[in-house]
Design a protein around this nucleic acid. Structure first.
Length: 785
DNA sequence: GTGATCTAAAAGCTCCATAA
DNA sequence: TTATGGAGCTTTTAGATCAC
């Protein structure tokens, strides 16, 4: 039996903190913007942390764990420690981020993992609208014009939403206690400060056709049990917000929104990871079959905790209403819904079904038509069993090898992804407004740039094509705040910048799908005298001409990359190439296909990217620490790196006992390797070389404890080449690769024993503060079967 | 070791887009 | 209304390199 993960539900908490040192000017400014401190409520979520009393004062050393005061908080990075020191006089609200797995994933592109330490800003924005004094509300009749269908028949069970009726099925899914509580008892608002006090009955106003639509919408919401009429005696309690409608996509219907800006300020600020195009596109396999599933009235599936419904009130035409289900406009609504959905989907992923979710939009992928039918039937049955209502009209249940999802058209036969036809038309319509000599508003220029930004991920060299347009817009020297309505003339330069975008193939061709499962790594370096490069043991170098030597070092570094690529082209042709350089500007200009700061670097990057686009499958750059940094010790670099954790040898011995002794460690370092033969993530001294993905893997039993971002590519390589691997990876419900792992399992997976010293770094000097949260399992997988 | 100079990153705001 | 992205700008911070 596979037990549920024990990772804490919540990642952050608020603290009040004080100290005595003198703030720097910058920090002082931040401090001045900070709010007065209100008494904070205890967290209502299991696993989260309590607030520190206002008067407490703590000193931390860099690198010290906060376990002594806040079990579960990770290390204090230098910046965090610094910020803790600067707080003086009064109190400060500081948000710590845990070393949350998603953060680790996000940070893997950079050499460091940083604690998030965000000082909240509290802006005073007043809710606009007509505010009735409380006295008036008390005396004014609230019966008014009735829009109601009597709710006499409504039972408490109805009010708790459709999911609550299936709480036993939810329990059977072994979901997190917080999810179970939310489903069963309704969502408790996660308040950071006291809830807002009664501000009178704020009546929403509408006239003309919108008044009628608003009335109809209220009736619809009443019928859906999303809202209820507030009994007369309770009208002068709770908190009222303004209510309005906005058209849905396509303009066919309207979406009711509660303007909860004021209430949202009283809620905690949590972020969460949503499905990104990058993750989606890298997870689609050739010849996959798709089915998409859409839920009806997504947020209305989850009830609001009865005692908190009074904070979600609105009034219209003399009647007061309150939301019984999660309304649009609640800042935490997308997160709460996603958390519940991810928990619901976990059993499906755990049984090997590949399903992607974006709020209430789901994509099921399988290798055959028959399998995707089976899988989607399972998914639908599971979702309905848990109380979800599927929108049959919007779902596309007929299997297909191309489908529209999140505004993209995925095609597994051509193995390409492109912009959906609707979005392409929107883009072309905007583009057509730019004609030589015509006047356009500055707002339209910004809209075009926004549209470009939203499509570059599926347009070949999109970022590069965008740069010239950016430069033209920047040359207008207008301020986006003041000059939105300013009209500007479309010049020849603008037309030239837009020319590549007018090519019909630019948007329709799309980009390839799939993940990079093997790549070549090229290391370059430059000085004022010359350049050097290495590729799999081969070397190349040269000396700058007197003229070249005058250029800025960034330009020289970029030129070094270009020369190295050309020199090694026979070995690089048709491959994914990763360039390692110690120059961060070069990294940024290559990955972002140019830039706007330095014209010279931009031109060189542009030439390099264009040259590569016709010769290489892909070109990415990454930063390697310079000589000065190499010896820097772990703690001085901030936080420990996920890839450097060492599993306890006894646990490794237990793994060997279960699955056999592996011969090669794929992602290791001299310090944490568990096999005599290993590839390293960064060190040059590894016996098999740096960067396992850049080398072929031997057909022996492999072992890997990869960084999160490398789990998918590792599995892809194992699958394609039929290799055997013992994978150590977290078992997190929201991660789509769980399904990929399950599909490749060759034996029963094993949950690593939870011991305090499970993970260590720096020769046992540092221990992971909460190894239980990683929920690590050993997964024996084999490909090609 | 220090300061100058260059860069990008980060954080704060703005705009745009997508999704719900 | 919210979330997630993509840019921009401004300011601060940090890293790399060079000259001294």
């Amino acid at each position: 039996t596979i037990s549920p993960p024990r990772r804490g539900e919540e990642e952050a908490c608020y603290l009040t903190q004080s100290s005595r040192s003198v703030p720097s000017p910058v920090k002082k400014r931040r401090k001045e913007r900070s709010p007065t401190v209100h008494e904070m409520e205890a967290p209502d979520v299991p696993g989260s942390l309590g607030a520190l009393p206002q008067s407490s004062s703590l000193q931390f050393e860099t690198g010290e764990t906060l376990d002594r005061c806040f079990p579960g908080l990770p290390y204090v990075s230098p910046s965090t420690a610094q910020r803790l020191e600067v707080v003086s006089g009064g109190t400060q609200r500081i948000k710590f981020g845990f070393l949350h797995p998603d953060e680790v994933s996000r940070a893997e592109c950079t050499p460091r993992i940083k604690n998030k330490c965000v000082i909240k800003k509290w802006q005073k924005k007043r809710c606009s609208g007509q505010l009735f004094p409380a006295e008036d509300a008390k005396t004014s009749p609230v019966s008014g014009r009735s829009l109601l269908r009597e709710e006499m028949s409504s039972s408490e069970g109805d009010a708790m939403g459709p999911l609550a009726a299936r709480v036993d099925q939810w329990r059977a899914c072994a979901v997190h206690p917080w999810v179970l509580s939310t489903v069963a008892n309704g969502y408790k608002l996660q308040l950071s400060v006291k809830p807002p006090s009664f501000n009178g009955v704020l009546s929403s106003v509408a006239d003309g056709p919108s008044a009628r639509i608003l009335e109809e919408e209220i009736v619809t919401l009443l019928n859906k049990r999303a809202i209820r009429r507030v009994p007369d005696e309770e009208v002068c309690q709770g908190f009222y917000s303004k209510y309005f409608l906005i058209p849905k996509k396509g303009g066919s219907s309207l979406r009711p929104i509660l303007d909860l800006r004021v209430l949202n300020k009283h809620l905690r600020k949590y972020t969460f990871r949503m499905l990104t195009y990058k993750v989606l596109c890298s997870s689609i396999r050739p010849n996959d079959w798709f089915v998409t599933i859409d839920l009806a009235d997504a947020y209305f599936h989850i009830a609001i905790y009865p005692a908190h419904r009074k904070f979600l009130r609105f009034a219209y035409q003399g009647a007061a209403y309150e939301f019984q289900r999660i309304p649009f406009g609640l800042s935490l609504a997308p997160r709460v819904f996603s958390k519940c959905v991810e928990a619901a989907l976990f059993p499906l992923r755990n049984s090997g079904i590949r399903i992607f979710s974006y709020i209430d939009d789901y994509l099921v992928c399988s290798h055959s038509r028959e399998q995707v039918i089976t899988d989607s039937v399972t998914v639908l049955r599971h979702l309905r069993n848990l109380g979800f209502t599927v929108n049959e009209t919007k779902s596309r249940l007929e299997p297909s090898q191309y489908t529209d999802y999140l505004g993209l058209t995925l095609n597994s036969l051509s193995y390409r992804v492109r912009l959906s036809t609707e979005r392409e038309q929107t883009f072309n319509h905007c583009l057509a407004l730019f004609q030589l000599g015509k006047m356009v508003t500055f707002r339209l220029c910004l809209r075009l740039l926004g549209l470009m930004a939203s499509v570059i991920s599926v347009v070949r060299l999109g970022l590069l094509m965008m740069r010239d347009v950016q430069r033209w817009v920047a040359s207008l020297r207008l301020c986006s705040r003041k000059h939105l309505s300013r009209r500007v003339r479309v010049t020849a330069r603008c037309m030239a910048a837009l020319r590549p975008w007018r090519d019909p193939a630019a948007l329709t061709a799309g980009v390839p799908l799939g993940a990079v499962s093997s790549r070549v790594t090229l290391t370059t370096d430059a000085s004022l005298w010359g350049w050097g490069a290495t590729l799999s043991g081969r070397t190349a170098n040269g000396v700058w001409s007197q003229q070249m030597a005058q250029f800025h070092i960034n330009v020289l570094e970029m030129q070094a990359v270009f020369l190295a690529l050309r020199h090694f082209l026979p070995y690089l042709y048709g491959r994914h190439v990763l360039v390692k350089t110690d120059n961060s500007s070069v990294v940024a200009y290559i990955n972002r296909q140019g830039g706007t700061r330095s014209q010279q670097l931009h031109e060189l990057a542009r030439r390099l990217v264009l040259w590569s686009s016709s010769r290489l499958l892909s070109l990415r750059a990454t930063h390697v620490a310079g000589v000065l940094n190499r010896g820097a010790d772990l703690l001085s670099r901030g936080n420990p790196l996920y890839g450097e954790w060492r599993l306890h040898p006894q646990v490794v011995a237990q793994i060997w006992q279960r699955y056999g002794k592996a011969a090669v460690d794929l992602f290791a370092s001299q310090e944490n390797a568990h096999c005599p033969l290993f590839f390293s993530l960064a060190e040059g001294s590894a016996p098999l070389g740096v960067d396992a993905l850049a080398h072929p893997w031997p057909d022996v039993l492999l072992y890997a404890f990869p960084p999160l971002s490398l789990i998918s590519p590792t599995l892809a390589r194992v699958r394609e080449q039929g290799l055997s691997l013992i994978l150590v990876a977290p078992r997190w419900p929201s991660k789509h690769w769980i399904a990929e792992i399950v599909q490749l399992l060759m034996a029963e997976p094993w949950p690593l024993p939870c011991r305090r010293d499970l993970l260590s770094q720096a020769r046992g000097e540092i221990f992971h503060p909460r190894p239980d949260r990683l929920s690590l399992w050993a997964w024996p997988v084999r490909g090609g079967t």
